[in-house]
Write a protein that binds this DNA or RNA. Structure first.
Length: 900
RNA sequence: GCCGACUUAGCUCAGUGGUAGAGCACUCGCUUCACACGCGAUAGGCCACAAGUUCGAAUCUUGUAGUCGGCACCA
């Protein structure tokens, strides 16, 4: 078979993915076992406007590893993909496009035409990300791909809304909300990000005090401090702390609010901190959440002075009407200055709320919106955590606590959005403004007894539909509540996602899952770390330091990228380095070439299931590699079951490169190249098992190579997939057979490896050319002698020696280089080649090293407390080690003395 | 302000009570018939600092410093 010298991922990636998908390998229906255990994962639905980034690639890789692993173990797996309509992002994107191409705004064309345009955009450009996902090799079931605005998912949204409304959890109310003046919509608290303002200022304004309502000026003034002077136009009180002696006498008096004709009261409230600023606070109930609450307590007027675009409205007065909030701020300050009422301006570090999406400073605004009271659902989620410790977080610390604390302090969720793209709120109003919440307009009309209804123009927060994702995608829509998929695949097994949507999404899925299905949506939640750039900085568009996964795929291959991502420690941030991918690219090439070697010498041999089993006459290397394989399978199972992907990657890397390539192939190479069919069969079979273990991580490479192996067929499939076309994807995942663990073989092989390494070490340190063959004298006990004798050919080859003299005692000329291993003493006569100074130095170094350890052991073992209190097993272990090292030191010292 | 994480070899990171590990980089040697994206052999660390618990601490506790993150507040 012709096989190139280096692995080229491109061809394998395209060809194999198409084949897998076309043959239906990704769908749960491929599983023929009616009793198969289900395993399901839903992908966090990416925004339909989004494109793939490293965070996705990381999460997706982990999910696919788990899915492929479970599928190979015979589970009926569903890996579900879909996308999110992403209300604001998508609406903004299409709005921009509309402006650019037709110079029109959404308002110009109207709601219906606009949403039609968004659908058009979605169908044409949306879902770019799902196409990119195919490149990642994800084994998702494309036949079940979902979109949050699919008919069935929309129905689920309406039903959930109506039910929560009917039960009193959803309500409409007037509150101070987070208003984005640019996007012109309300946002939930979670969509607001606090950021430090660059040049924050604190303005001290003097308010003239009147001696009482309607009374004359006192000549006194009260100074208030504010960061938003423009809001003073909406002030309806000034508050001081009731126990503040400075202002005691002023409470009950009034203020002639400058720049307005209004007179406002001075009130006392505990909310005010005397120490802060001047101890007197201007109160603007319509533009500040705290002020609003204070206003409620004191029955203050709530005067709205701004429009929805953050310009001042008529109530702000003719001087200010129409001005932007920042222009108004300057003008207010100017006027105060002119009036001599500006006391001072101080620099002040202030953090301001920003719109997460467009970065505009949020304006707190009094507005009528829809809210969800989360208390019932919150309690269900907390109970689930308290009583069942579910979901289990990986890593548990700190996420369990953060999640729980957040739930405990949960506030009402603002769910209406002033957008057109999304799930329109199923509420209708009659001409008198009465509200009718219903599943359909017909139902609402029936309730209202009239056809003169207008639907609420707002849509729901995108996360409202995402919150239902684990069950709405499986067929639940509020009317159909027991779909086949729901019965089989809910709850899902594990959710893999980033920290950033722990509150926005994870917690809400738990709450809705408990409320509407009565069951948790998933058992486990794996929280991935953040992929940072090589300097440890967050990747961001503005910094331009992002790394595009597609570029990395193109450069190093998908499999190498997957290994790199999976190789990062679960939940820990890690800095991206191309060198890491490069090393896994090299690993892929190593696997390719190891296979190439096996295939070049496979005449007459083929993969054989029995070859993995021990048989009489198997050589030490065979027994050893079988044991290593099984031990690796065992550790791999544990690593994956506990989501320690990096551990799994290490195990596979070490097993394949060190054990299989560096030792096993080299040990059996002579037999293989000599055309020993039995030996070829054995190595092909080990290789085949190794490829299976690697498959969940490196799907393309392993499929490509597996298909080349002689003797592979669907006969190697897990029994659940016996009718499927042959693929490594559906083979049985190797699990450890305890009977094949062979401690004796590992110990014996360890002695051989140590011996060979020691000889190589002597050669390297004595600068003996590999062209020079020498005799190696070995002294060891009888058992060890036998081991060396029966592996003499391999030792000679790998140690590049000509002859072994295996005895109980060393009897060698003084002109020898010496060394010790745990099991043997070694001497290599080097007449004419030996450099005595160098040899003395070499021995001295070894003696010193061992001596340090020996001293430590001696110290520990002579400590009565240690011997008395440490476990006997540990004491014995150290005693054995002490004996062993003592022996080695003795031998080395004798050798050294000979050279004196 | 509250909560949390991290600090280990030059770099990026594993390691959770009992002799410090990997990959990359570095040094030395190798045109060894799968692979130079390779092979072989080295070197490199008071495990941030301090105190405590323990026979024994990189690992547990407390404190300190630095880095980063989440939440709250911010007149």
């Amino acid at each position: 078979m012709e096989i190139s010298k280096a692995y080229d991922p491109k061809e394998a990636e395209e060809k194999n993915y198409q084949r897998w998908e076309a043959l239906g390998f990704f769908a749960p229906e491929i599983n023929e076992n009616p009793h198969a255990e289900p395993f399901s994962i839903v992908i966090p639905p990416p925004n339909v406007t989004g494109s793939l980034h490293m965070g996705h690639a990381l999460q997706h890789t982990l999910m696919d590893v788990l899915t492929r692993w479970k599928r190979m173990l015979g589970y009926r797996t569903l890996f579900l993909i879909g996308s999110d309509h992403a209300g604001i992002s998508t609406q903004l994107m299409v709005t921009r496009q509309l402006k650019k191409e037709e110079h029109k705004s959404p308002k110009d064309i109207g709601r219906e035409a606009f949403t039609a345009k968004v659908w058009e955009w979605k169908n044409k450009y949306g879902g770019e990300i799902t196409r990119q996902i195919r490149r990642e090799g994800l084994s998702v079931d494309w036949t079940r791909e979902r979109f949050t605005m699919d008919e069935n998912l929309s129905k689920a949204v309406r039903n959930v809304f109506v039910r929560l409304y009917e039960e009193g959890w959803i309500y409409r109310g007037t509150r101070i909300v987070n208003w984005c003046p640019k996007d012109k919509t309300v946002l939930s608290d979670l969509e607001v990000k606090e950021e430090k303002a660059k040049d924050g200022k604190l303005y001290f304004l003097k308010y003239p005090v009147l001696s009482g309502p309607g009374a004359a000026a006192t000549g006194l003034s009260l100074t208030v401090a504010t960061t938003r002077p423009e809001t003073m136009l909406g002030d309806t009180a000034v508050a001081v702390n009731p126990s503040d002696d400075r202002y005691k006498d002023l409470v009950g008096k009034t203020i002639a609010l400058p720049l307005t004709s209004r007179e406002i009261p001075i009130v006392a409230d505990d909310y005010v901190e005397s120490e802060f600023g001047t101890g007197a606070v201007k109160i603007t109930p319509a533009h500040d959440a705290n002020d609003w609450e204070l206003g409620e307590r004191h029955n203050l007027e709530k005067l709205v002075v701004m429009n929805d675009d953050a310009t001042m409205n008529a109530a702000a007065g003719p001087d200010f009407e129409g001005l932007d909030r920042y222009a108004a701020r300057e003008k207010v300050i100017e006027k105060f200055d002119e009036l001599g009422l500006l006391e001072k301006i101080e620099d002040y570090d202030v953090t301001l709320p920003h719109c997460e999406r467009c970065k505009t400073v949020i304006e707190p605004l009094l507005s009528e919106q829809w809210f969800v009271n989360m208390s019932e659902m919150r309690d269900l989620a907390l109970k689930l955590m308290r009583e069942e410790n579910t979901p289990r977080f990986f890593p548990e610390v700190p996420h369990k606590k953060v999640y729980t604390t957040w739930l405990e302090n949960l506030k009402d969720w603002t769910i209406s959005r002033q957008l057109w793209w999304g799930h329109q709120i199923p509420a209708w109003y009659d001409t008198e403004g009465n509200v009718y919440v219903a599943r359909t307009e017909q139902e609402a009309q029936k309730q209202a007894g009239t056809h003169e209804l207008k639907q609420d123009p707002d849509v729901l927060d995108t996360w409202f539909s995402s919150a239902l994702w684990p069950f709405s995608t499986l067929g639940w829509n509020g009317e159909m509540t027991d779909s086949d998929d729901l019965k089989v695949f809910y709850p899902t097994d594990v959710l893999v996602t980033g920290r950033d949507i722990l509150f926005l999404w994870v917690s809400r899925m738990v709450m809705t899952g408990m409320k509407f299905i009565g069951q948790k949506p998933f058992d486990d939640v794996v929280i991935t770390g953040t992929v940072l750039d090589k300097n440890g900085q967050r990747m961001s568009k503005t910094k331009g330091n992002g790394i595009d996964p597609l570029d990395v795929f193109a450069k190093y291959g998908v499999d190498a990228t997957r290994m790199t991502l999976a190789g990062s420690s679960t939940g820990v941030d890690f800095a991206w380095r191309d060198e890491k991918v490069e090393s896994f690219r090299n690993f892929a090439n190593k696997i390719w070439n190891a296979t190439r070697f096996c295939l070049m010498n496979s005449e007459g041999a083929s993969v054989s299931f029995e070859a993995g089993l021990p048989a009489a006459g198997l050589s030490l290397p065979d027994r050893w590699i079988v044991s290593r394989l099984n031990k690796t399978a065992k550790a791999l199972d544990h690593a994956l079951a506990t989501y320690q992907f990096h551990e799994a990657v290490q195990l596979l890397y070490h097993f394949f490169w060190d054990d299989f390539c560096d030792w096993y192939i080299e040990l059996v190479k002579d037999e293989i190249t000599a055309g020993d069919v039995a030996a070829s069969t054995r190595i092909l079979s080990i290789l085949e098992q190794a490829l299976r273990m690697l498959h969940p991580f490196m799907p393309y490479l392993t499929e490509e190579l597996w298909q080349m192996l002689p003797g592979v067929s669907s006969g190697l499939h897990n029994s659940a997939y016996s009718s499927a076309d042959q693929t490594i994807m559906l083979t049985d995942f190797p699990v450890c057979s305890d009977a094949l663990l062979d401690d004796a073989a590992e110990t014996e092989m360890g002695a051989v490896i140590e011996l060979i390494t020691k000889v190589r070490n002597i050669r390297a340190e004595m600068n003996i050319s590999t062209a020079i063959k020498f005799t190696v004298h070995i002294a060891a006990n009888a058992d060890t002698q036998n081991i060396f004798r029966s592996n003499e050919a391999q030792i000679l080859k790998l140690a590049r020696a000509e002859k072994l003299v295996i005895t109980g005692d060393l009897d060698v000329p003084r002109t020898s280089a010496k060394g010790v291993t745990a099991a043997a003493a070694i001497a290599i006569p080097l007449e004419g080649l030996i450099d005595f100074d160098k040899e003395r130095e070499r021995l001295q170094n070894q003696i010193e090293k061992l001596d340090i350890e020996l001293q430590r052991l001696n110290g520990q073992l002579s400590n009565e407390n240690f011997v008395a209190k440490a476990p006997a097993e540990k004491v014995k272990e150290l005693r054995d080690r002490q004996g062993e090292i003592g022996q080695q030191v003795t031998v080395l010292k004798q050798n050294f003395d000979v050279l004196k």
